[in-house]
Amino acid sequence: MAIEVQGKTIETDANGNLVSPQDWNRDVAEKLAAEEGIELTQEHWDVLEYLRDEYLNNNGNQPMERQINKDMGKRWGKKIGSKDLYKLFPKAPSKQGNRVAGLPFIARKGGY
């Protein structure tokens, strides 16, 4: 599979995740989000940047949902729950969020 962004073909796997996380940029994220029916807000970008930072700068870490909740709560300065993140990424923040963030597919349950 592949997506087309600004005249460039970017390879995706069978799950729709990028084959190479280095192909990701904001335009690619917008395209992937649109395919998921998501219009990106600043909160979406915060989660995407967090997921990419964890993966790229923390030995390929792909946090489970509980950790995403805790870390986003700290970043946003308020207590958040799973419902808050599922409003952003209805098909699971740790899976759909990773897909839009350009990260590899993760074959595990969400995270509690």
Rank of each mutant, 00 (worst) to 15 (best):
residue 86 Y to G: 00
residue 61 N to C: 06
residue 80 I to R: 12
residue 78 K to G: 01
residue 87 K to I: 00
residue 62 Q to F: 01
residue 77 G to A: 08
residue 102 G to E: 10
residue 106 I to T: 12
residue 105 F to V: 04
residue 54 E to C: 04
residue 78 K to V: 09
residue 67 Q to T: 07
residue 94 S to C: 14
residue 92 A to T: 07
residue 73 G to N: 01
residue 108 R to M: 06
residue 63 P to C: 07
residue 94 S to D: 09
residue 94 S to V: 12
residue 58 N to W: 06
residue 97 G to V: 12
residue 79 K to Q: 12
residue 90 P to H: 14
residue 104 P to D: 09
residue 93 P to L: 07
residue 97 G to K: 09
residue 55 Y to M: 02
residue 81 G to I: 03
residue 76 W to R: 03
residue 67 Q to P: 00
residue 69 N to E: 12
residue 100 V to M: 09
residue 86 Y to A: 13
residue 100 V to I: 15
residue 56 L to K: 01
residue 83 K to A: 13
residue 60 G to K: 10
residue 67 Q to Y: 10
residue 72 M to H: 05
residue 66 R to N: 07
residue 102 G to D: 04
residue 67 Q to M: 10
residue 104 P to L: 02
residue 71 D to K: 03
residue 99 R to C: 11
residue 71 D to R: 02
residue 103 L to E: 03
residue 99 R to I: 07
residue 61 N to A: 05
residue 88 L to W: 06
residue 99 R to T: 08
residue 93 P to W: 03
residue 77 G to M: 06
residue 102 G to W: 08
residue 70 K to D: 03
residue 94 S to R: 15
residue 81 G to E: 12
residue 80 I to N: 06
residue 55 Y to S: 01
residue 54 E to N: 02
residue 82 S to T: 14
residue 57 N to L: 03
residue 96 Q to L: 09
residue 92 A to K: 14
residue 57 N to Y: 03
residue 105 F to N: 14
residue 90 P to W: 11
residue 97 G to F: 14
residue 75 R to T: 08
residue 84 D to G: 00
residue 85 L to Y: 11
residue 91 K to L: 13
